[in-house]
Amino acid sequence: MATVDEPIVVESQSPIREAMRAFRQSWAGMLGLILLILVVLFTYVGPFLYSVDPFEVIWAPLTAPGETERAPLGTDYLGRDILAGLIHGGSATLYVGLAAGFITITIGILMGAFAGFFRGAVDEVLMRITEFFQVLPALLFAMVLVTLFPPSIYIVALAIGIVSWPTTARLTRAEFLRIRTLEYVNAARSVGAKNSRIMWRVILPNALAPLIVSATLTIGIAILFEAGLSFLGLGDPNVFSWGLMIGAGREYILDAWWAVTFPGFMIFLTVLGFSLVGDGLNDAFNPKLRER
């Protein structure tokens, strides 16, 4: 067998700086980051440069892209400007995605941390609850929640958070189960650290790498969820969003392909950005996998 040549450590660096360096070398991660920056600029700077109201009827309905300068990407079935819709439709999507992602991760980490740290009966109960939530088809459950309660983007974000946390919980639990037996946890315990300190100050920081990757992907999934609900017309009716545009354009798809294609493409680019960044972070945190 050939002898394996181990890379020689030239200088030691903090793990965060090392991960950032590795991330910068990740082709997928950098592409994803650029995509996200473009989407954010488009959504938050766009309105200042292109001040057409997405609700305003500006031209003949179902005008194809390029037919008029007033609506470069065409108009929808009411004659509203598609480009304006794209620019204004992003903020709700990003907001719901981030908020729902935050809720998902918070619930998931809490459930997983307690289950993995205390094990035994606590683990049993919490994992049964997790399993129960995994049995519910998430979108249907979210649909029920947003219809039973008055629709607003907060309810939408909450509903998505409530249905999506089990994956994060399982991941957190697995990490806690793994780390709690390691030497440095025993060391912390032997100097008399309290459970809460061991959980949040000792174990959690060491479990962060996979959780950050998972959080990135979770935001992507939450955005898809929001888009799905809006597409079905179950989102906040007062807020313009990409999903809503697709739902509205759906009936006219054979007359106006642009009304569904462009907003869907925006969602796709956004989610792609998050999942590529997730891939990049994964590469950055797992140097071993990078070799493959």
């Binding site: 597409f231 798809i253 294609t261 792609l272």
Partner: peptide, 22 residues
């Protein structure tokens, strides 16, 4: 897999509709 993961499923469906109807 990257595209399939990131594209909203209803949008993929609509794109197929355009492709296979038009």
């Amino acid at each position: 897999s990257v595209v399939g993961y990131s594209a909203p499923i209803f949008w993929t469906g609509l794109m197929l509709v355009i492709l296979f109807a038009w």
